[in-house]
């Protein structure tokens, strides 16, 4: 199945990838997608550290969340607005 990955702030700058389409196996989780991306190169490995926050379809989610075809998964650092 296909999902869309988005990154923001430091995560976007380190990976140099604001957005990409990714083929993943059925019942992939956010964690398994992170592992797959971390295998790509050092930048992804560095960017997706333990502090990174994850969202699925515009809602914060846990890393064990099971994904569906067409989902939009985002990775970003802790927020600093206000």
């Amino acid at each position: 199945m296909k999902i869309t990955i988005k990154t923001f702030a430091q995560t976007r700058e380190i990976t140099k990838t604001p957005s990409l389409e990714l083929d993943v196996e059925e019942k992939a989780t956010v964690a398994s997608v992170m592992a797959k991306l971390q295998e790509r190169d050092e930048n992804w490995s560095l960017a997706l550290d333990t502090s990174v926050l994850t969202a699925c379809n515009h809602q914060l989610c846990e890393k064990d969340m099971v994904l569906c075809d067409g989902d939009e998964v985002a990775f970003f650092p802790p927020v600093t607005g206000g």
């Binding site: 923001f8 702030a9 430091q10 914060l60 985002a74 970003f76 927020v79 600093t80 607005g81």
Partner: peptide, 18 residues
């Protein structure tokens, strides 16, 4: 400041720091 996806970068003399 905990749950809304906004990120600040400080700007100074051509440099920027998250």
């Amino acid at each position: 400041k905990q749950s809304v996806p906004l990120w600040k970068k400080e700007l100074n003399q051509g440099e920027s720091i998250w």
